[in-house]
Design a protein around this nucleic acid. Structure first.
Length: 449
RNA sequence: GUGGGCGUAGCUCAGCUGGUUAGAGUGUUGGAUUGUGGAUCCAAAGGUCGUGGGUUCGAGCCCCACCUCCCACCCCA
């Protein structure tokens, strides 16, 4: 039988786990220092919780879970797939952590104090076609604050992004935009209903160029006049302040747009009051497809690596409203641990002392010495030293070879001599040095190494 | 969902314009070496050449279909 795992999923070897945990630990530490508390939610949610939150594309990418039992009874299978699916699938795998979090807040509103800040490190699933940096199962590391409209929250998210990538040693640019500015633009050209179409097209500006963007806008149903009306936006240039000032002029009498500009002005002036090492820039072409965003939107790109964004997020004013708890605004970011892993691999940024199965391995000479060996190993473990007793009295070469491959720091020899004199011989595997010591001395030596 | 590329040993790959018994390196196992690893040498095991069909006297190689993985678009972490 040929064994394999489903498309877009991966196994992780011990080395990989050590590196992944290094990323998770780094992110978790930053979240904790910003006073976020952990929660978890189930892998499967009711499909009704998930559907319609991520746009048409997102609905297609949801993994749906087939009902159990006689789910085919009374279902008309001659209908289209998207009509049949909701009837035979009541549940689906979560697509992100933000929507389940909104559901969580509504459901547990009596047990949490607003404003509430939580972090959550869990896998999500998308039925995308896999490719570089895109998996069907991947981890998101989310931090969200809910129940506060203060832009201080946005500032702290930027500081957290800065802290995480600083610790990991990755150079990044944080791009910031505001959905209200985008909808202001849509209103300005007289196509508020085309907000998504306009943003998706504008998003591609740096990739396909102005002419192609205009072509795409035309395809998406904007008139030539409307496209022409966008020119003042495309012509904005200069510093962040210049662009924001330009937008103010464009947005006279455009309440939505002006509100967005004001938020951006406030956020950028806040950012200027703190010290941030990474690049932070205003990017008016940043759109982000998830259609629950209503205010600030963030996206983080790694320098020197061509991969999608490694972190993203934004403010959502009414996500809980869908579940029956209106007027609770939230804002959050999500770190893509798997992409960060890929970036760090490509840039060779992992520390090389990560992960070690055992600090000391006891050579197995046979049943005579074994009771003493077991006692020694127990003492080592009591002192927090990870210890391994080779399970079989195999040939010395084989045992040494194994210790070498495992990368254990010390090998312990306990034969007749050592046992009789209550000693232990330990060998440092990287230096090759070897000495016979009392057990407390050996413990001290290993702990020092 | 659309387009492109790949598929030969556990892994990385070679295999000539189609020719008889499919190779190397690495890894695995055993030995040289009975209380000492990384090096070297020897030996062994390991393949329905992605799957199915077709062309041919003859297919790993040519043709068709399907599958997989990779890459790009789309979208996004």
């Amino acid at each position: 039988m040929k064994c394999s795992i489903p498309k877009g999923t991966r196994d992780f070897l011990p080395v990989e786990m050590a590196r992944r945990n290094y990323i998770f630990d780094t992110i978790r530490d930053v979240f904790k220092t910003f006073a976020f508390e952990p929660i978890e939610t189930p892998s499967i949610e009711n499909l009704s919780t998930l559907m319609g939150k991520y746009g048409e594309e997102g609905d297609k990418l949801l993994f749906k879970v087939l009902n159990s039992g006689n789910f085919m009874d009374g279902v008309d299978f001659s209908q289209e797939y998207n009509k049949v699916a909701p009837k035979i699938c009541d549940r689906g795998l979560r697509y992100d952590l933000t929507v389940p979090f909104a559901r969580f807040v509504v459901q547990h509103r009596d047990q949490i104090a607003l404003p509430f800040r939580r972090y959550q490190l869990q896998p999500v699933w998308r039925a995308d076609r896999p490719q570089k940096g895109r998996y069907r199962e991947f981890y998101q590391c989310d931090a969200d604050m809910i129940g506060s409209r203060s832009l201080l929250n946005e500032l702290e998210l930027v500081q957290m992004i800065d802290a995480v990538f600083n610790k990991l040693g990755i150079g990044v640019t944080v791009k910031i935009n505001n959905r209200k500015v985008l909808s202001g633009i849509a209103t300005m050209v007289g196509a508020p209903d085309k907000l998504i179409d306009i943003t998706v097209a504008i998003d591609k500006l740096d990739k396909i160029g102005l002419d192609n963007v205009k072509g795409e806008l035309r395809e998406r149903g904007l008139s030539d006049g409307q496209i022409l009306a966008l020119d003042p936006v495309f012509n904005l240039s200069g510093s962040t302040n210049d662009k924001l000032a330009g937008l103010r002029n464009i947005f006279t009498n455009n309440a939505d747009g002006l509100a967005g500009v004001e938020e951006l002005e406030t956020l950028f002036s806040l950012i200027n009051t703190v010290s941030v090492d990474c690049n932070v820039e205003l990017d008016l072409t940043l759109a982000r497809g998830l259609n629950y965003y209503t205010g600030a939107i963030f996206e983080v790109k790694a320098h020197d690596v061509s991969i999608g964004s490694i972190c993203g997020g934004g403010r959502y004013d009414n996500l809980t409203g869908i579940f029956g708890m209106p007027d609770v605004s939230g804002v959050g970011i999500s770190f893509g641990a798997d992409r960060i892993y890929d970036v760090m691999t490509e840039l060779n940024k992992f520390p090389d002392n990560l992960g070690q199965a055992a600090q000391v391995m006891f050579i197995n000479f046979g049943n005579n010495e074994l009771p003493y060996v077991i006692k020694c190993a127990a003492q080592m473990r009591d002192h927090g030293i990870s210890s391994l007793v080779y399970p079989d009295a195999a040939k010395m070469k084989k045992q040494m070879d194994y210790a070498n491959k495992k990368g254990v720091a010390f090998v312990a020899f306990i034969g007749e001599n050592e046992m009789n004199q209550n000693n232990i011989t330990i060998k440092n595997m990287s230096s090759g040095q070897q000495s016979t010591l009392s057990i407390p001395e050996a413990i001290a030596t290993i702990q020092k190494a």
